[in-house]
């Protein structure tokens, strides 16, 4: 219960500041540009698919949305001192970590859900541009959800080891940049060296491509879930470590 109250409070506080609205509007705008203008727009891909969305969404989520949403989670509470008020209520430290995590993840998922407008608008109503294979769409969204779960957990972890939101933002950005972009490049090189699969497995993109193709690979699910659990556990330890400093 405590976890849910904390998550609820957290989610609500995003919407009392302009942050949530700005992030949502910005994302919609970027997606719009992506769909209708960039590289000739959606129309150039002469198949009814959302590949474009699933190709670019990880960049938007990991390089903008997740760092912005997670930077304040614990860092802000530490620097303003509200953490003391929160933790001295009868709550466990893990409930605080989990509650904050769910609040932030909730916002990211809401954001992802708002992008469903695009496929619906194009293939169901008001336009009916043809029939789309819904299988890859569903698995693609599942992939985005799982990736966000992992990314948000990483952001929370980083926010829990600093008191500065700015540092939290940049470190999260850099970490996710590494996981999304660098491993992509590194994978290309590594392919030539014959260790491509390993490097690819570490990065997010190889998993996301599978999901976008309609492939739900258990290894990918396990991969994202283990990052999530592992990060949350370290965040919990980090929060707990205040006791011993």
């Amino acid at each position: 219960m405590h976890t849910l109250y904390i998550a609820q409070r957290e989610l609500k506080s995003y919407f009392t500041s302009p942050l949530a609205y700005v992030v949502i509007c910005l994302t919609q705008l970027l997606l719009g540009v992506l769909f209708f203008m960039y590289r000739g727009g959606f129309w150039q891909v002469d198949r009814a698919t959302l590949d474009r969305l699933f190709e670019y969404a990880p960049y938007g989520l990991c390089l903008l949305v997740i760092p912005v949403v997670t930077m304040r989670l614990i860092a802000e509470e530490k620097s303003t001192g509200t953490l003391e008020m929160l933790i001295t209520l009868p709550v466990n430290d893990w409930e605080v970590v989990l509650g904050k995590y769910l609040g932030a993840l909730g916002l990211v998922l809401i954001l992802i859900l708002t992008t469903v407008i695009y496929p619906i608008a194009m293939f169901v109503w008001p336009w009916n541009l043809g029939t789309i294979d819904w299988g890859p769409v569903k698995s693609g969204y599942l992939g985005l959800g799982l990736m966000s779960a992992a990314g948000t957990a990483i952001g929370l972890l980083i926010s829990s080891v600093t008191r500065s939101q700015v540092i939290a933002f940049f470190v999260t950005f850099a970490t996710l940049f590494g996981l999304v972009v660098l491993t992509g490049f590194a994978g290309d090189f590594a392919n030539r060296a014959g260790v491509g699969t390993v490097v690819n497995f570490i990065g997010f993109q190889s998993h996301m491509t599978n999901f976008a193709r309609g492939l739900i690979d258990t290894r990918s699910v396990v991969y994202f879930l283990s990052i999530t659990i592992f990060s949350l556990m370290i965040a919990f330890r980090a929060l707990e470590s205040r006791k011993w400093k």
Binding site: S13, S17, T80, G81, E84, M85, L89, P90
Partner: peptide, 27 residues
């Protein structure tokens, strides 16, 4: 019941919301 020094409280909540939150957390 504990009042920390300088009473750090979430600035983005109203007084009622905050007290309600605390009451819920305290069951």
């Amino acid at each position: 019941g504990y009042l920390p020094q300088r009473a750090p409280i979430y600035p983005d909540m109203t007084v009622w919301e905050y007290l309600e939150f605390v009451a819920k957390m305290r069951g």
